[in-house]
Simulated assay, not measured.
Amino acid sequence: MADDSAGPVAGCYVCDKHRGLRHAMPGGPLWADELTVVTHIDPRDTAVDDVYLGHLLVEPRRHAPGLADLTADEARHVGQWASHAARALREEAGAEHVYAAVIGDGVPHLHLHLMPRYPGTPREYWWDRVNEWPDGPHGGVAEAAELVARLRSVTP
């Protein structure tokens, strides 16, 4: 069972992001509540100048390394926000499918990746290569912030 008293962990990328100790997220959080934050992946945190547009992260506010560490309430909120974000990607961004993955090898604070597959994506780029599609929508901070504003218009 998760430790409900665990506060932010110093040096944790996600904890620092939620506390405002890192640069502002493109467009700010899409949605947030007392337990969960949904954001767009930030181009400034990658080795390239742009990111796959629509690549969202659903994160618990409390430092929880993995799915098994979530409380029942956190798990419910993560699931509800993931469902809402996937619906927004479909309705507002035109995704035909949304992939979800928890990897957790690089950052030990749970972050659920949501990655849309847009119409016309060749089959060889489906699933874990969807963001490598050269003709897929990619952009920098401004483009990610613009998409965030559009997605945010889809109310929970």
Rank of each mutant, 00 (worst) to 15 (best):
C15R: 00
M1D: 09
V148Q: 01
E59K: 01
H113S: 10
L70E: 00
H97M: 11
Y13D: 12
A47H: 05
V9F: 04
A86E: 08
P137T: 10
A100C: 11
A142F: 03
W126P: 10
L21W: 04
P26L: 08
E92Q: 15
L30H: 03
A95K: 02
P60V: 01
P26G: 04
S5H: 08
A47S: 11
T46N: 08
L147A: 10
S153F: 04
G140T: 09
D3E: 12
H55V: 04
A145T: 09
Y52C: 13
E96P: 11
W81T: 01
E92T: 14
C15Q: 05
R123M: 11
V102W: 10
Y99V: 08
V98T: 05
P43C: 09
W126V: 09
E92M: 14
D69M: 00
D4M: 12
T36F: 01
D73K: 10
D135V: 06
G94R: 11
G140A: 10
R87P: 03
D4G: 04
M115A: 15
R90Q: 13
L56D: 00
A100K: 02
G11Q: 06
R152L: 06
D4P: 12
Q80F: 05
V9H: 03
H63R: 01
V130M: 14
A88Q: 00
G28E: 06
A86Q: 07
E92N: 13
L35S: 05
V148A: 11
A10S: 11
L21A: 09
A100E: 03
Y125H: 15
A2V: 12
T46A: 12
P134G: 14
P134C: 11
L35F: 03
A86G: 15
V14S: 02
T155E: 15
D45E: 10
D45N: 12
G120E: 15
A144E: 02
A93W: 09
I103L: 15
P65T: 11
T36C: 10
M25D: 12
H77R: 14
Y118L: 13
L30F: 04
L30A: 09
P122N: 09
H113N: 07
E91D: 15
E91G: 13
R90H: 12
L67R: 03
A101M: 12
L114D: 00
E132H: 14
A47P: 05
A64Q: 02
M1F: 08
W127S: 15
P60I: 00
H111S: 03
A100L: 13
A47D: 14
G120L: 13
P26W: 02
A68D: 13
Y125D: 06
G11Y: 05
T36Q: 01
T71Y: 05
R62T: 03
P29C: 09
W126I: 08
G106V: 12
V98S: 01
V38S: 00
D105T: 15
G27E: 02
